[in-house]
Design a protein around this nucleic acid. Structure first.
Lengths: 114, 114
DNA sequence: GCGCATAGGTAGAACGCCTACATATGACCT
DNA sequence: AGGTCATATGTAGGCGTTCTACCTATGCGC
């Protein structure tokens, strides 16, 4: 059954996917499917990471040099591509967190009710 | 001079523009240019609202019935289109704030460092 | 044998914002 | 009188990101 009409029950705040992925990879190298599951579980299923967003994002991050990858085997014995965050990726994560926090402060300032 | 290369010094967290505009209009009816200035000033110039984003957004909000508009005169004596938030727009604003808060909680849960 | 969860991926469209441009006018300076 | 700046509204085209909708493959339980 497709998600109920009108709106999906889980969304993603645009522009935060890269940050969420990089953050997840600071815990340990993981394969794509596991990254998505991790984000969904920790967010209490509020955030959902679609495959159509996930894999292009991982390619993007790789192209920028923020993660590297190699084929391996998942705990369940399947082949899986494992992603590892690089030093450059950690710096990027720091920048993204700063930028996100800065914007949050700014938005709160505009949204502040009397 | 165009903004220094690499990154502009002010951005917008994607998906929040409608919310910021609607919030600004709860204070009083205002014309587009004033809305943009208000957001920029309150955010301490962290957020910038470009014309190419502002006017299409206002049209969008109007089409959805969340704001209405009519021509008037600005304090400086120029013609300006004044926008007013509707009851439906206030409900929408409430929904957007809830959704934003929900996602923030979710993102924080993923980003939480030990 | 069948369905489900796991795992990786692509194509195409939709969306939201930005850059750059176009227009107009009032205020101020020289 | 001419120039520039701030005010004010808009449009066209492009870009990056995300989503929908597919496709493939395999291991496991029924």
């Amino acid at each position: 059954m497709p998600p109920s009409p009108g709106q999906s029950r889980s969304e993603l705040l645009k522009g935060t996917l890269d940050m969420l992925i990089l953050q997840t990879l600071t815990l340990q190298p993981q394969h794509g499917y596991a990254i998505a599951q991790h984000i969904e579980r920790l967010s209490n299923d509020v955030l959902s990471v679609e495959q159509g967003s996930l894999y292009p994002a991982l390619e993007r991050l790789q192209k920028k040099g923020w993660v590297t990858s190699k084929w391996g085997e998942s705990p369940t014995g399947r082949k899986a591509r494992y992603y590892t965050i690089t030093a450059s990726g950690r710096r990027q994560l720091g920048r993204e967190i700063s930028s996100f926090d800065r914007m949050l402060v700014a938005i709160r300032a505009v949204m502040k009710r009397a």
